[in-house]
Each structure stands twice: as structure tokens, then as C-alpha cells.
Design a protein around this nucleic acid. Structure first.
Lengths: 177, 177
DNA sequence: GGCAAATGATTAACATGTTAAATGGTTAGG
DNA sequence: CCTAACCATTTAACATGTTAATCATTTGCC
């Protein structure tokens, strides 16, 4: 932690640092950073297992979403797996090439694509699920099941709070209360 | 392979779903997803304002981290702004080209680079800070200051819990509990 | 001093996030 | 009907996430 900081108020760096005082809270304690760090701490536990099966986090999300339904349209899948259209489009192309999913156009509406998981996809899920569940159980045990449920509830409440909040548009930067 | 896709039975049809049963919890309720959705809900509020100033979320993190110190080495900055080296490297190159930061090599150790914010960078922060603070205040008011502090505490606790947890390595996928 | 190992930073390669535009298909008004 | 508006999906373009490799420098050790 002992960082050599040759800094006085007149050392190297930009001259005249008096203007540095901008009144903002310590950004490392900001909500976005807290959420980012917490999520990273969680995902760090899962990534090695997924990587061992040649799966990214997003690919795993898609497979799991598909495993829960018979078929699903792309737009609905994007909402379920919480991915944007372009990302989903690319990943589905790859998963289809790996024959982990199947895709066909909807009969009623030729614009829509209907996706489903393949037998290979189900096999892959069955292969990954045990270690994934074990990791989740370990996290739950370490943090506390009650505490974890409480956290999830707060996260859902936060999400719900903000969903009703309209986003400040550009052009009038200071017109948001 | 032969999978029926009869009509609009995209939910939980009782037909032909027997092989699909893999015992996993609903992934949309998983902790990673909860954290991801919560963070996205928060960032959705900030992105338009940042975009209005031609800043990405990560660039903004770097500028704010730089504004809090006189100078900082790249490795330390990566830890502070929670970015991986390669991402930071690219972003610093761009920010330097836009003259929002300054960079020089450390005298003691030629491998290390020392970064500081420029006068233009400070001006940009001053321009963005008001709306950013306003948005944060709106979030705090809507969710509740106490509740927010409580959430942050739980997130920090979760991070701390997992930091002590050793990551399961590859090679022995099924050797856990 | 000299050299292998370690270190800080960057580059490479590929996957995803993000916004805008393009591509086909569908629907509504005239 | 016919076309303009709309809709679902994909493609494009650029920024970042992620791991591995590279490059230059420094350090440890004899």
C-alpha cells in the first residue's frame, strides 16, 4: 500500500492543481461501482468452470433460458437472457454452428425466428450444472442464505424504483430533478 | 432432433418436455442476473448524460479516479477504476489523444507510466459533474438514502465474503462437494 | 557484471456491449 | 391493391471485456 507519491502541490504533473477540487463523492463508493465489483466477485467464481466447457457467461445464460422452455422467439429470448439484439444475434449464430441450438422461422410471421435447445445443448447443460450448482451453494453458504435473499430483494426493489424513473434526455443537462 | 413446435405453446406445455428437466434454479433469479439487471437499471440513468459529453462509462471512471489524485501509475489506476490492463491501455491512448490526460514515464522505473489529468480533463469533469450528481441524488431520493447505504453495505460484504473464497480450478469439474 | 526470472505495460485475438443503419417481412390507409 | 409506416432481426462500426503473448525493463542471484 505504500505508494511512492513524489507529489507535493508543486511537483510534476500539470502545473497549478488548485482547480482540482470538484465536489463529487468518492466514485469508488458509488452505486454503479459497488454493483460492478460485487458482480465481478461472483462471476469470478463461475468463469473457470464455464471456460472449461468452452462457454462464455452469455452463452451459458442463453442455454439456460432455452432449457426452461420448449421454444422461444429471439426478441423474447433477448429479454429473458438480458442481452441486446446484436449480441444475441451473434451468439445464436455461433451456438447454431456448434449445434447446441436449433433455429427456424415462425410460420405465422416470417420475420420472427424461433429458437430451441438441441440434444447436445441439453447434454452440455447437464455437464455444467453440477459444478455450477456447487459454486452457487458455496456462495450461498458463505454469505448466508437469508442474507442473500435479502440482498436479492433489495436489488429487485432498486430495479423497480428506477424503472419508473424517466431518463434525462440530452439537450437539457440540468433539467432533471 | 425431431422436436414439436406446435403453435403458441411457448410457455410450459405438458407435451414433450420430459427430457428437458435439468435441476437448476430459475436463472433469472440468480445472483449474477440480479446484480446485472440492477446495475443496468442504474447505468441507464447516467449514460445519456455521459454520452452528451462524448464519454463512455469507463472513460468517466478513469477521469474521476484521476481527479482524486495528483498522479497515479497505470497499475494502480487499473485497480482504482476497476479496469483490466488492456482496456485501460486503449482508453488511456484515446484520452491522451483528446488531451484529457497526460502521461509520462516514471523516472525511477522506466517500465512504469505515470498518469495525471489535464486542465481540459478537469474542465470536462466540472461540466459533467452537476448532472451526474443530480441523477445520483434522484436515485438516492427515490430508493431511500438509508436503504441505499444498507444495500451498499451488503454488496461490500458479499465482495468480502467471496474474496476469501478460492476459485475452483479447471481439470476437476466434479470434485466439489 | 551477467543472465534468467519477474514485472509493468502494451499488443493481439476474439467475444460482447452499444448505438445506428440496413434488410426483409407485415400491417394499415388511401 | 399499393405503398408508406411499422416491426423483427441482422449487419456495421466502434468501445470494452477477457485471456494470452509480446516487449522492454528491472531485479535476484551467482
Amino acid at each position: 500500500m505504500a505508494r511512492k507519491q513524489s507529489a507535493k502541490n508543486s511537483g510534476s504533473g500539470p502545473a497549478g492543481v488548485a482547480a482540482r477540487r470538484v465536489p463529487m463523492r468518492d466514485f469508488s463508493r458509488s452505486l454503479p461501482m459497488s454493483l460492478l465489483r460485487a458482480r465481478e466477485a461472483v462471476m469470478r467464481q463461475f468463469r473457470p468452470s464455464l471456460r472449461h466447457h468452452e462457454l462464455t457467461e452469455q452463452q451459458w445464460r442463453i442455454l439456460r433460458a432455452l432449457a426452461a422452455v420448449e421454444t422461444i422467439e429471439v426478441t423474447e429470448l433477448a429479454r429473458t437472457a438480458f442481452l441486446l439484439g446484436p449480441s444475441l444475434s451473434r451468439i445464436l449464430r455461433d451456438l447454431e454452428a456448434r449445434q447446441l441450438i436449433e433455429r427456424r422461422v415462425a410460420e405465422a410471421d416470417q420475420r420472427r425466428a424461433v429458437v430451441s435447445i438441441s440434444a447436445d445443448g441439453l447434454k452440455l447443460i447437464a455437464a455444467v450444472a453440477p459444478s455450477s450448482e456447487a459454486i452457487y451453494a458455496a456462495i450461498t453458504k458463505r454469505f448466508g442464505a437469508r442474507r442473500l435473499a435479502e440482498l436479492q430483494e433489495m436489488l429487485a426493489a432498486l430495479e423497480h424504483s428506477l424503472s419508473a424513473m424517466e431518463v434525462a434526455e440530452e439537450g437539457s443537462v440540468e433539467a432533471d430533478q
